[in-house]
């Protein structure tokens, strides 16, 4: 498989047992291929399953049917039904995921949050710190905040910490769920530049971007789940 990601006939239905067993069929026979250096932008209205697809690719949601083949080193992993430790290994080495919300842990400083994925890969602490600082600096987080827990940061600052954490490793595959949603124009420009650089290095990207100018700057292909789904 030369593609980075290949999604076949993916179905995702949520069954809400605590709400009378209501069934929500969110993804229906989705097919999608992503090549290296592609930035595929999902361009459906909200509520149509874009985040669900990204989370399924990341192994966070459990699809009912179909396959998600992800190129992982020399192997191909089907994220549907993969063992938990395989999913964790894919996340550690291959797939990065950035949402618009940072999960803040009390007492853990911003810089430590950013370098955690590097440390998990075995990057020496000093090198990880250097790369983490460079990333935070580029994302315009003032250095007086680096040693603080982001609990008290603004939404935009938290989001930039999240972007730093997601991009610091340089994963071969990136899943981006509105990474620029609550950023001011200048910060948005930096994030767009970082993503464009990753794309230039051959990173395979799937993302949702609310802003039209961000889409235009980044997309190599725009698809809708509607088109990607079985009739």
């Amino acid at each position: 498989m030369t593609d980075a990601i290949a999604v076949f006939d993916l179905d995702k239905t949520f069954t809400l047992h605590t709400q009378g067993g209501i069934r929500l069929r969110v993804l229906r026979g989705v097919n999608l291929t992503v090549r290296w250096g592609d930035c595929v932008v999902l361009a459906d209205p909200s509520g149509s399953g874009k985040s669900t697809l990204l989370r399924a690719i990341y192994g966070n949601y459990v699809p009912q049917a179909g396959h998600i083949h992800v190129r992982h080193g020399d192997a191909v992993v089907d994220m549907v039904g993969a063992a938990p430790r395989t999913v964790l290994d894919v996340r550690r080495r291959t797939v990065g995921y950035v949402s618009q919300f940072l999960r803040v842990v009390p007492r853990v400083p911003a810089l430590e949050i950013v370098i955690e994925p590097l440390r998990a890969l075995g990057v020496p602490r000093l090198e990880a710190l250097e790369r983490g600082r460079a990333m935070l600096e580029r994302l315009r987080i003032p250095d007086r905040l680096w040693t603080l827990s982001p609990v008290t940061f603004s939404g935009g600052e938290q989001q930039r910490v999240n972007v730093a954490r997601g991009l610091v490793v340089g994963y071969p595959i990136l899943l981006l769920d509105e990474p620029t949603a609550s950023l001011d124009t200048a910060s948005r420009g930096v994030v767009v530049d970082l993503i464009a650089e990753a794309r230039g290095r051959g990173t395979a990207i799937v993302g949702t971007f609310h802003d039209a100018d961000v889409r235009i700057a980044l997309a190599t292909r725009v698809v809708t789940l509607h088109e990607a789904s079985a009739a």
Binding site: R55, N60, Y61, V62
Partner: peptide
Amino acid sequence: SGLTDQVLDDPQHPYTQLLVS
């Protein structure tokens, strides 16, 4: 059973859904 974030974010069993909700 499963990956922690998957069980918490997309619980499958009615009892897990009840716990999480």
